[in-house]
């Protein structure tokens, strides 16, 4: 037991040995495939209650890992002198666990991209409504992906950065993507204008307070406000620091507590919403 916890504390158990890293990694991936392929028929033969029991157990253990890592004391040097006093025996496993979550996220990105491409391919092949836009999407997707991948390989000196790649990537990234991104964000300014013109009306006491406060802050936070009156920036800062901040604090408390309660319900499988 002492040897095991010492090993876990020293990270040895969470990292593959340097010398045979490729072999161990291959074995782990192959083992995972076999486990999953073997697990699927077992899960299918189980009754729904049995499947739910497995899901509940796995969810609980996964949540328990992170909760235990946070709550367990960190300084175990009194019992294990070789231990690092800044972490407990689960802390070294956090990084690998987060890496696993990121890999799952990357797989999900592949799934999402597959769904998108499939939809638009079908639109194009079956000539559904507005299939021309689907062609545009597919061509843009392929071209941008090709240039981006080549650019990354060129950065790592795996392929040569020729003039076509250089120019092509500059056109696609600097002159197209960046400009389109900025253009879309700039729409927000125009939409704010139309939304403010439509919404800021004296319809009720609350709406009037909202309107006048918004106007005060809008003019107070810009240089023009200071030119009109030195009091305006002071009032605007006061509204932001003394009215906005406490209200926001109150909302953030509620949101934080709500999030924690929801996390507890999910961990203990008390939440029946999505599952």
């Amino acid at each position: 037991m002492v040897v095991l916890t010492n090993l876990m504390a020293q990270q040895t158990i969470w990292r593959l040995p340097e010398e045979s890293r490729v072999l161990f990694a291959t074995l782990i991936v192959a083992g995972a495939f076999v486990l999953i392929l073997g697990l699927i028929p077992v899960l299918q033969t189980l009754p729904p209650r049995g499947r739910r029991a497995i899901v509940v157990t796995v969810t609980f253990l996964a949540g328990l890992f992170f909760a235990a890592e946070f709550f367990l004391p960190v300084d175990w040097t009194a019992i294990f002198p070789k231990d690092d006093p800044k972490r407990n025996f689960l802390t070294p496993a956090i990084q690998p666990a987060q890496n696993v979550l990121q890999i799952i996220g990357a797989l999900a990105l592949g799934l999402g991209t597959f769904g998108l491409v499939r939809l638009h391919l079908r639109n194009a092949v079956q000539r559904r409504a507005q299939w021309g836009y689907s062609i545009v999407l597919l061509v843009s997707f392929v071209v941008m992906a090709a240039f981006s991948i080549l650019n990354t390989l060129a950065e790592k000196k795996i392929v040569e950065r020729g003039p076509v790649l250089e120019r092509g990537f500059a056109i696609l990234f600097d002159h197209t993507l960046i400009q389109l991104d900025a253009a879309m964000f700039s729409l927000v300014a125009f939409y704010i204008f139309s939304a403010a013109y439509r919404a800021f009306r004296i319809r009720s006491v609350e709406a009037s307070i909202l309107m006048f406060t918004a106007m005060l802050v809008m003019i107070g936070v810009v240089p023009l406000g200071a030119q009109i009156s030195p009091a305006l920036p002071t009032i605007a800062n006061w509204v932001l620091a003394q009215l906005n901040a406490p209200a926001q604090r109150a909302i953030e408390f509620g949101v934080g507590i709500g999030g924690l309660a929801m996390a507890i319900r999910l961990w203990l499988s008390l939440e029946r919403g999505v599952t």
Binding site: F193, A196, Y197, R198, R201, M215, I219, L224
Partner: peptide
């Protein structure tokens, strides 16, 4: 600055 002034002017105009 002047965009904010314009928005304020139109809010007042709308009201």
């Amino acid at each position: 600055s002047f965009s904010h002034l314009l928005i304020i002017a139109f809010i007042l105009l709308g009201n």
